[in-house]
């Protein structure tokens, strides 16, 4: 793989919350076009904090996030043009139909002149049932909402995609479909950063896998390296080891 400039880049990123919790401790990380980066780590390891920092939802204590080379804190509005986001539990507008939700968020993402058929195409692509297209989202199951959430990310067509535990609570089939779509996005050249608790799927889809512990990236492996190592064993070993900080 040719080394291209990373689209997502965290440099020396730290976050200490107001109550003193050091949630992120000098994190360095980058994700290149066509690459899927999986962040693993126990609850409270700092995965969501990382994603929130990329989206400028919270200011970093030290360090910088770059999206497409743009400093997120300096020019958030410009940076956010180049990123799509899928959150853990997408509730969306319950009274809106799937298509209305998709249409609104597409417009927010800068896609203003799409026709109905284009919305339908994207929903078909994430294999949402045809009859759900014009149904109110409050009747949707979690999996259906999650599919709609990723169709919102797809329609924005941004070079970077951030996903926070997107497969949490999905049944195995839905999760499998979800990862297929992720693979397609990767083949389109998107840089994908995904936090997850699913070690097996991380190994399957991830071009690189990082394990976080107490706000630090304690391990990083490429797909090639993982062919010879047991990710589950590494993960458990890291979790079992002594706390990093006294």
């Amino acid at each position: 793989m040719t080394k291209q400039n990373p689209i997502l880049r965290a440099e020396d990123l730290s976050k200490r919350y107001e109550d003193g919790v050091l949630a992120l401790d000098h994190l360095n990380l980058d994700v290149r076009p066509g690459e899927v980066y999986c962040l693993l780590g126990a609850n409270g390891a700092g995965k969501t904090t990382t994603i929130n920092l990329f989206l400028n939802f919270i200011p970093p204590t030290t360090g910088t996030c770059y999206i497409q080379g743009i400093d997120v804190t300096k020019d958030p509005l410009e940076a956010k043009k180049y990123v799509s986001f899928v959150s853990e539990n997408v509730m969306l507008y319950g009274n809106f139909t799937a298509r209305q939700n998709l249409e609104f968020f597409a417009k927010l993402g800068g896609k203003t002149n799409l026709i109905k058929e284009q919305y339908y195409q994207v929903m078909r692509r994430v294999s949402l049932q045809e009859k759900a297209f014009e149904q109110r989202v409050k009747t949707f199951s979690k999996g259906m909402r999650q599919k709609l959430g990723i169709s919102i990310a797809i329609i924005k067509d941004a070079p970077a995609v951030l996903l926070d535990e997107p497969t949490a609570g999905l049944d195995p089939k839905a999760a499998e479909e979800f990862l297929e779509i992720l693979g397609e996005l990767k083949n389109e050249g998107k840089a994908i950063l995904m936090s997850t608790h699913d070690i097996f799927r991380a190994k399957e889809i991830g071009d690189r896998v990082g394990i976080m512990k107490e706000g630090r990236l304690v391990m990083e492996r490429t797909r090639e390296e993982l062919q010879y190592e047991d990710l589950v064993k590494i993960y458990i070993d890291y979790m079992k080891s002594e706390p990093l900080t006294a």
């Binding site: 956010k80 507008y93 951030l162």
Partner: peptide, 15 residues
């Protein structure tokens, strides 16, 4: 905020 749409909205280039 509770339904998460605020986060989703603000992940876009809108002030």
């Amino acid at each position: 905020k509770e339904s998460g749409v605020l986060r989703l909205m603000l992940s876009n280039s809108v002030s």
